[in-house]
Design a protein around this nucleic acid. Structure first.
Lengths: 303, 303
DNA sequence: TGGTTATATGAGACAAACTCATAAATTTCA
DNA sequence: TGAAATTTATGAGTTTGTCTCATATAACCA
């Protein structure tokens, strides 16, 4: 004997209890009194227990019925909460914004952007996922993340790359370093140096993809460091050289013992993009994020 | 836009998630894959949000779908718990046993009985309600209580009075009290005494209903005391006399400074009954309670 | 790219739930 | 106490929604 309880039944039990009678409850629920009578009769038959005292006239709950009432009072608000959340989603107030960043240094400007965003869109679930920095675009397509920050746009059917701002990867070295005397730095200059980079594959590092790999130059040494601040400290104390986006060295002032130089005579310019699924471009909060990123970029350039 | 969420949907969401696909879930739920497809399509239409990623092949939950999954995982166990409780009720293992006691002294033997009962019937919700000692029988008929302990049986259509045991209301007085010298006590003997009783109406007190009211005798003083132990203390210190069921004075030995005497030459014998709704007589635990009460009574008589 | 697996869709069958009309039971009030 | 009013129950018929069957479409994998 299996009981076929449904939300309808819980709502009925709760309403009959609160209204203090079948007829009034029927009125509240916009349903006939007959329907309710049939409904609870069916429920009682399936449950195998009496839920209401019928001998009494405005009918009341039995202990078993009261148990069901407690269940209703626990469960129904949960349903309502979910309904409310969903209405948020429908109306674009709520949603998920999980961001994958390919460029390791992007924390620097992304965190303040997200701090602002969070206040504007309190119902949006924000997160940064540096974990899948390698294959972020497949993750985007599989809807595991919603935005990918990248400087290597690809031509994909369902993904749109929106330019955020331009930046220049610049050479960073200790002020006492011999190369600090040069006007600009070329690939060859790295030959005798220890290069400090973020711990990601070479293809994702501007130094390699834009300079060293094309010139087939291999630095004397390599060292991988997670944090921007630490990279700059190591560079300042002349333990190696690095290449970082210009805004990083402008913004972060952990030490003044390093100098920056452009890469190549003309300098290298790159563009940072926000990649999203085409369908998500209609979402206001996605557009807002991109806008905020642009604003933040301006601040950084001026700094 | 109203969302018509039902338990069925929660089960579906949960099963699809666990099975890792629509087809497998359909198999587990003993339903066609088509039905599930229709079901979630309908749900998504009404909710207005996508619950599953259809671009991916074994389809997966969207964030909204995951929200629903969390709801399912919270709610479904609650349902199961209630189902289990109800099956207990159906099979007579569980139920409610709320007892109203008209006779105030009955705590003395009822508590140990219930202690035993509780172990035998762990799923029965036991309670004593001394509050409605006055109109206990209407409460029984309205299913507010399930058993009434009373010594005044009435002839009611739907209520059955089952004799539990006989007892004798006996006179209790200080050992130093002049009446302690008499072989038996008559109504007239109360004329100069202060009578200590439970705080209930006269009609419910054996002294009045069986002795004083018929004889039109009024004691010199009256004092109402809640607790049996206190009544006996007061009697022992000669602050008044009392009439209590014989088992009380046999069992409770708070003080040895009091003596008991029978009421009238022949002694008065009364019977204590358990009143229940006729329909409840089929319940095993009700029969068991009555049986246990009889056993306890025997112990008291022997003590 | 073609085979395979997984999901979607449409039409019809079926069952559940509702409405309407009315009966039965309980309470109220004169 | 008995008639009126109120409240719940019941049966028949209709509507609504959910399921199945057959088949189309889409994604995955080699």
């Amino acid at each position: 004997m299996k009981m076929h309880l449904e939300f309808r039944h819980l709502r009925t039990v709760k309403t009959i209890h609160e209204a203090g009678g079948l007829a009034k409850a029927a009125d509240i629920l916009n349903i006939t009194q007959s329907a309710l009578s049939h409904q609870i009769k069916g429920l009682e038959a399936q449950a195998g227990v009496a839920l209401f005292l019928r001998r009494i006239k405005p009918m009341r709950l039995t202990p078993a019925g009261l148990r069901l009432l407690r269940l209703a009072e626990k469960i129904l608000p949960e349903i309502d909460a979910v309904q409310t959340e969903f209405s948020g989603l429908r109306e674009g107030r709520a949603g998920r914004l999980h961001i994958a960043i390919e460029c390791h240094a992007c924390f620097e400007w992304l965190l303040p952007v997200l701090e602002t965003f969070r206040k504007l869109w309190p119902e949006v679930d924000v997160d940064i996922r540096p974990g899948l920095a390698f294959d972020a675009l497949p993750a985007l397509q599989k809807e595991e993340v919603d935005v990918v920050i990248s400087s290597d746009p690809e031509n994909l059917a369902d993904v749109e790359f929106i330019p955020l701002f331009d930046y220049a990867p610049v050479f960073v070295a200790s002020s006492k370093h011999p190369l600090a005397l040069k006007d600009f730095i070329e690939a060859q200059d790295f030959r005798g140096e220890t290069l400090i980079t973020y711990p990601v594959e070479r293809a994702r590092l501007d130094v390699f993809s834009q300079l060293l790999t094309p010139a087939k130059v291999e630095p004397a040494g390599l060292r991988q460091v997670e944090l921007t601040a630490v990279i700059l400290m190591l560079v300042a104390s002349n333990r190696g050289v690095a290449v970082l986006p210009d805004w990083v060295v402008r913004e972060v002032k952990y030490s003044s013992d390093y100098t920056t130089r452009p890469l190549t005579q003309t300098g290298i310019t790159r563009t940072l993009y926000a990649a999203t699924r085409r369908e998500d471009l209609t979402k206001k909060y996605i557009k807002d994020l991109i806008h905020l990123a642009g604003e933040e970029a301006k601040n950084l350039q001026l700094a």
